[in-house]
Design a binder for these strands. Structure first.
Lengths: 346, 346
DNA sequence: GGCGAATGCGCAAACGTTCGCGCAATGGAA
DNA sequence: TTCCATTGCGCGAACGTTTGCGCATTCGCC
């Protein structure tokens, strides 16, 4: 006859189990497992060994309840139509695990966040928030701010009460502009995005500044709606222009739109780069495909995510840290779509 | 001089706060908020009103600790190189929220799951698991099984101790085969996947059965590695074949490979569908692009995810429910890549 | 030989919910 | 009037962890 208290034969090992087994107090187990130096090295070793033997796994909810920390990072990810967000998410998952952070998906997709959804931020006591969505409703930001949840925007410029890490959009776009200028281009089109995309705005500005600085006429501005389809449609318009007024180079502020542009030109028999040059921005893997060979600026995704998680971690430890914005320089990747290098074209 | 107990001026409202405010016991508040009929309708109404006023939000960790249910679904999602997984994930996020489920990302990407990662399943007490990865290591399945965590595979056939929901791959592939047969095709190539993809295997088999049944010679089988690049390379091989031996139709078992196939043919001047027909499987949005116009079978993503979540929900409530496999029929979408409809080609 | 500081650990109170019981009050039936 | 059911709610013990505080011991030092 065994004692009945353990209702199910095999229950999961807890700190209590360990403490009984080791003949110490639960608090000692807790401290030993997190390497508290107040516990003697021998005891610590003994307890870790025991934990391994019994297959002990800490109970996240209990920890959260007691400590106020969940180890959860809420993520809001943008439209699935742009592969960049997918890459970003995957990179975040990859990097978060080793840091002891888990990702709780709060919202995904192009639409705004519903109120009921934002509740999860509170319910699950997320320690921080990673946002890549275009539309961050201010009430979500308010919820985070009033609960001391640090927010880091990735690939978005900071708003009130949040930090941000972006690619150096101005510099990258200027590099692209310079590349095209060096090849003798003087008439440009920019396939832009709506004003709600801060990233798109910056890239557009960086490009415009450089080409107007160089004395070119202001580029033709067309809204590509941040989608492949938008880029496609805009390129059809460009292709339909009389040759004399048609720009000789197109800057699509994101690769996904550039793909649409390239495909549309091909459908219309406009040759890239012979008839027109095309450049993008993001550095999606697909930009390297033989059918695109797109010149672009590759965002340093790994570094950006690493920085973002680091900033989050720092602010979780020290909530008083001021908001911060860092921008990382991307790499210009020259491919066929922008035409021959200047040495050969001149 | 206020009493000090509330350390911070404004603390979050808890059930205790509400109980004091309403003059009832905490247990009553708990029951009232979940609509327990043992509490009088008036009391229930009063408490819900109060909860709204004070901005009460339940504390998920406390609930988990006490009830053993977390409301969390662990998700394992496959490679970011295939947009299908992205679509699937987004659909899951969309549908889970209204059901009161949140998605905790356990693992993302093509690689296998590390042990340390799988721990999250236990630590966070996930109620169920949604898996779309190609490789489900058996130890993860074991963890779930031994802890009573129901597992549903999506777009994968069931393994031990898990349910599954898939598209009817056999039927869909047979439909594609029939379509091509009706147009007079007799020599086929299949761009397949490795044996680890159960879905790919089924599609291949469904196609093969139909065409051999129709008396055709066995198709040329080429491994496309489930990637765009793989499809591209295989199509280059096909294009290099002497015309007499070259198949007249290619079935890529996933759209992403079909895109590679189409682009490779275009690069080689092989015209689709005049010189060769191409069909895919998945129904990715990109299949509709003017540069692809890919005939494919569209997986009923919304229904599949809905079914998966429903099965999970049912098993969370009744752990003894037997494992189950459901397959949903997709829609054949005929586009340009498969050639003219039979009525005009004959 | 006495004093203060380490060193190493235990006590017990949180954290916010859930849920099995149990208890009082009310009502109807006998 | 007594008895039993029903209705409506409260009591209190979990759930597993963290953490501030405090208490012994041991050691070095004057």
């Amino acid at each position: 006859m065994d004692e009945l208290p353990p209702p199910l034969a095999a229950r999961r090992a807890t700190i209590i189990t360990l403490s009984r087994e080791a003949g110490v107090a639960p608090s000692t187990v807790s401290r030993a497992l997190k390497g508290d130096t107040r516990i003697s090295p021998e005891t610590r070793a003994r307890i870790s060994r025991l934990a391994k033997e019994l297959g002990y796994t800490p109970h996240a909810s209990a920890r959260t309840l007691s400590s106020g920390r969940s180890g959860l990072i809420g993520v809001v990810v943008g439209s699935s139509a742009n592969p960049f967000y997918t890459e970003l998410l995957h990179e975040a998952v990859r990097q978060a695990a080793p840091l002891g952070m888990r990702l709780l998906i709060i919202h995904a997709g192009p639409g705004p966040i519903e109120n009921s959804t934002a509740d999860a931020l509170l319910q699950y006591q997320v320690d921080g928030c990673l946002m890549t969505s275009v539309e961050l409703p201010s009430h979500v930001a308010a919820i985070c701010a009033s609960n001391g949840v640090p927010v880091v925007m990735v690939n978005r410029v900071a708003r009130m009460n949040s930090s941000a890490v972006t690619c150096d959009n101005l510099f990258g776009a200027a590099q692209l502009a310079q590349l095209l200028l060096d090849q003798g281009h003087r008439r440009f089109a920019v396939v832009r995005t709506s004003a709600s995309s801060s990233t798109g705005q910056e890239r557009e500005r960086g490009f415009l500044e450089r080409v107007t600085e160089a004395g070119c006429e202001p580029p033709l501005l067309l809204d590509g709606r941040s989608t492949y389809e938008g880029g496609y449609e805009r390129a059809l318009q460009i292709a339909a222009l009389p040759a004399a007024r048609r720009p000789t180079a197109v800057f699509a502020v994101s690769d996904i739109m550039a793909f649409g542009v390239l495909d549309a030109f091909r459908m219309r028999g406009v040759r890239v780069p012979q008839d027109i040059s095309v450049v993008g921005f993001d550095g999606l893997p697909a930009a390297a495909r033989p059918c695109y060979e797109l010149t672009t600026v590759e965002q340093p995704l790994g570094a950006m995510v690493g920085r973002a998680l680091g900033m989050l971690q720092a602010r979780i430890g020290h909530p008083s840290l001021p908001d911060e914005t860092v921008s990382l320089r991307g790499a210009l990747i020259v491919r066929k779509s922008s035409g021959s290098p200047p040495s050969r074209s001149r």
